[in-house]
Structure formats: structure tokens, C-alpha cells
Write a protein that binds this DNA or RNA. Sequence first.
RNA 1: CGGGAGGUAGUUCAGCCCGGUAGAAUACCUGGUUUGGGACCAGGGGGUCGCAGGUUCGAAUCCUGUCCUCCCGACCA
Length: 492
Amino acid sequence: MSKEITSRQQDYSQWYNDLILKGGLADYSAVRGCMVIKPYGFALWENMRDVLDKMFKDTGHVNAYFPLFVPKSLFEAEEKNAEGFAKECAIVTHYRLKADPNTKGKLMVDPEAKLEEELVVRPTSEAIIWNTYKGWIQSYRDLPILVNQWANVVRWEMRTRLFLRTAEFLWQEGHTAHATKEEAIIETEKMLDVYADFVENWMALPVIKGIKTANERFAGADETYCIEALMQDGKALQAGTSHFLGQNFAKAFDVKFSDKSNKLDYVWATSWGVSTRLIGGLVMAHSDDDGLILPPKIAPFQVVIVPIFKGDDEKKLIDEKVHTLIQQLKQLNIRVKYDDSDNARPGWKFAEYEMKGVPIRVAIGARDLANNVAEIARRDTKEKTSVNLNELAVYIQNLLNTIQESMFNKAKAFRDEHITEVNTWDEFVQTLDTKTGFVSAHWDGTPETEEKIKEQTKATIRCIPLNNKQENGNCILTGNASTQRVLFARAY
RNA sequence: CGGGAGGUAGUUCAGCCCGGUAGAAUACCUGGUUUGGGACCAGGGGGUCGCAGGUUCGAAUCCUGUCCUCCCGACCA
């Protein structure tokens, strides 16, 4: 009973924290704003990473690694980028400690060891990477450069939340260089599609593809594309971004190339990233008051088998059947765990694996063996059925697909129900306060109006959807003419 | 960074106001009985009371500082 989870209704934030901590995904650490990702959480991240990494490679990208530290002079080269991140940078100023002469056994920063130039711990790697690309690019024949990096970054956030916003987080960042603007834009859009494909088809999380307004754009980008997801409490979550950087970084780092006619021009750039934040979104979108609900395609374990037995003789008989089943499941590439530990009884294990979100539970006892069946329980719907052992492996294979699909459909139905078109300010405010979710409304296109709406309602423009329908209307705040609706929401 | 709450056994917490031998539940270990939705009996081990100073004969308790966490707000490509 010590592991009881706070209900969503009682305290949504506490529910979220309970799931992460008690589900065994992560722990708090001794470092401000930084978390420990535990083996179960990291296994989830590894599965996500492996799928994404293959997608990147299938679209022609290669991995590389750049330094954690960025000399301050490089960091400040692209002015807007530097300004945007300046407030949340960790900075290395010294390179040595020494024994504190005043306190035995304590260390102090050695004032003699001050760095000539401070090093910024990367909050993002455009600067160090573009400084490097300068040496890699002379001719159009050197382009495109399609590089991805799996890395950690540090952003000194004021208020942190497990997975959703931590001071240090894991991510991938793609940084590409192109000869033409058109090619760079195609790349930006292509990677947005990769993200949407991954998040929808692997994480079972429906997203809206769109572009950010100038206010919400990445510092240093000409255009920011994004995918936006909706959480169960009606708040939006930016799940991934893909930036068209124009020639901003090429100009800042003086990266030019000769085209076929030997004319010099600046290189065109993109960058794109998703992070461990996706895990936070996954948790918030799918789980319930009994614990996590993980989509089969990325769950660390897709199936857990719990034996129910009295005495060693029964256990032996069950073991035999289970080992056959495990072989069958492994041949189908299904990740399975057999929990035959004797320190917990079946009921305890049921609750434990529900909390950990394992998609399918198989229970086998003497009663089942007599009928050559096993009890199958779905985590997402809690439905239980008895299935003949001879058909079980294939049944599980199919059920995993069904669960994956069903989770996506459920999340999509919720998302679609929570996109509300409104035409007046009153409707707008009321929808945000009572119904929550995305609100589709006309906006006059000015940053000032966007800012005022944010001040008054805490809602921001999440995106202007791609392929947005054009229609005439009036801005909900100012009444000025507008040609399209945009999506507002309160967001994480 | 502002406001509020907190840090004592692996975990959840009591004890603090009013200073005097560190407690409960649960988890863990041993033995036994159990096992189809978080088992039971008996015995046992485990805590520099976040950290550092100070007051005191004596500090988990009082004072100062500091670190970390949670909630609300500001901030958040």
C-alpha cells in the first residue's frame, strides 16, 4: 500500500510525479533540477532512440559528436541565438580545485586557475557545430552535410519537472547544411514528418504539425516547425521542433561555398531535435490512476508472465509451459519478462506491473493448466480473457498491435474532441477555462496581440497548422481582419 | 527568482511548540504456513535526524547559514 498513486482528479501534478517515481522511470538527484533516469526509464528511452536513429539513417543522416563546451566567443557569434539562451546558461570559469587552507578536508576553487575565456555548457550546439562546419565546406560538392548528434544539453531552468523540463536532458539534434534555400526547407519539413511519424506510430500520440509564430520561434531561426500534442489535463506539449535556420549561422560563422558557376554564397541550414521530454508527454497522455500505460512498440517489456502455484511441483509444470511460450514469443521478437520471483504474491505482481505499464499480463496457474489456457489481461482496458496455450503466442502478437492502435485512437479521439473553434473573446476565455485543449480562433497576425492574449489568458499560439484552411474572419481580441485560424492552448 | 510547504530507517510518516537513552507502519533478513487482485505468524538487522556552524552540562528539538525537493507564480528555443 506504500505505493499508492495520487489520482488525476485529486492532484494532476502529483499524479504525474507518482507515476514517474513509483513506476521506476526516474528519481530525483542531489543536483538541482537534474534527475536520475533509472534502468526502466532508460530502457524506454533506448527503444525510442533506436527507432529514431534508424529513421534518421534511413533518411540519409549520419551520427557525429561535438564538444560539451562552447567557448563564449563562439556562443555569442549568432546574436539572436545567444540572446535567446543567455539567461539559462551554465558557465565554466575555472579548471582546478585545491585544498581549502581554512577548512580541513574541504576543497575550494583555485583562483589561480581561472580560464582565459569562459566555456558555456551547451544549451544547444549550433555554435560549436557551425564553427566546425566552416572547415568542412568549400564547394557545393561538400554539401549537403546531414549530421545528427545524440547528446546531453544543459538549460538552467527556473522551475524543473521530471522529464518535462530538467536542467540537464538527453536529446538528439540534427544539424544540416545545404546549397539552396529550397533544399534546406525540404529537409526541415522532412524531419518534421519523421518526428510526426515516430510520435504517432510508435508512441501512439497524435500530433498537429504546424509552424510557430515569430514570438515562439527558435532563437536564430527563420522558421520553426513543430509538432504539438495534447495531454489529459487539456494542456498542450511541444513534442518536437524542426528549424529552418536560413543563412543566419552561415553568416555568423562565415561559412561560404562555391557553386557550380564558381560563385560564393552562404550555406543554408536546418536543425531539429526531440528530447527525453517526449517521455513526459507519453506518461501524461496515456496513463491512468493505476499507473503508467506504455505503448507496446516502445515498452521495455511488452508482456509479463506471472505464475500462480502451490508448491514446487506445480511451479515445475508451469515453468515448462512458460518456457515454451517464451521461446515462441521471442521468435516473434516480443519482449517478455517471466516474473517467477517468490518474494511477492500474484496480486502484488499484478498491481506492480500495472503501475509499470506493461501492455499485456499473462497469468498461468494450475487451474489454467488443466484447461491448457492462460489468463490474458490488457493494461490499457483492463480486459481479461482466457486463451488456449497453443494459440497464445500469435494471440499476443495480434493483441499488441490492437493495443498500440487502440491507444492511438483513444488519444486521438480525446485530442479531436478538444479542438474547439470559437469566434468571440468570451467563448475563447470560457473554452480555455472549462473545456481546455486547443482553441482554434482568428488572430490578427501581430506579435502584440499574441502577447496580450498570453498575458490575459496564459494561452499561447501553439502553431499555425500546416495546410491551414484559409478563411476570412476577425481577430478574437482586436476584431481586426484575419485570413486563417490558429491554434491556441495553455502549454507545458 | 518571489510566495508557501517540506527533508528523521529502503519508503511513508510521528516526535520538534515545551532540549534529557531516536519511534511506528511498511519494506528487508531468518524460519514456518501461504500463493487466482497488494498474505499471515514468530524472531532479527537497519537511522552521523539533509549539510555546516552556533547556544547549552546536554540539540532531531532552539538560533544562523547553506543545499535539495514539492506546490503556486514569474521564466521556459
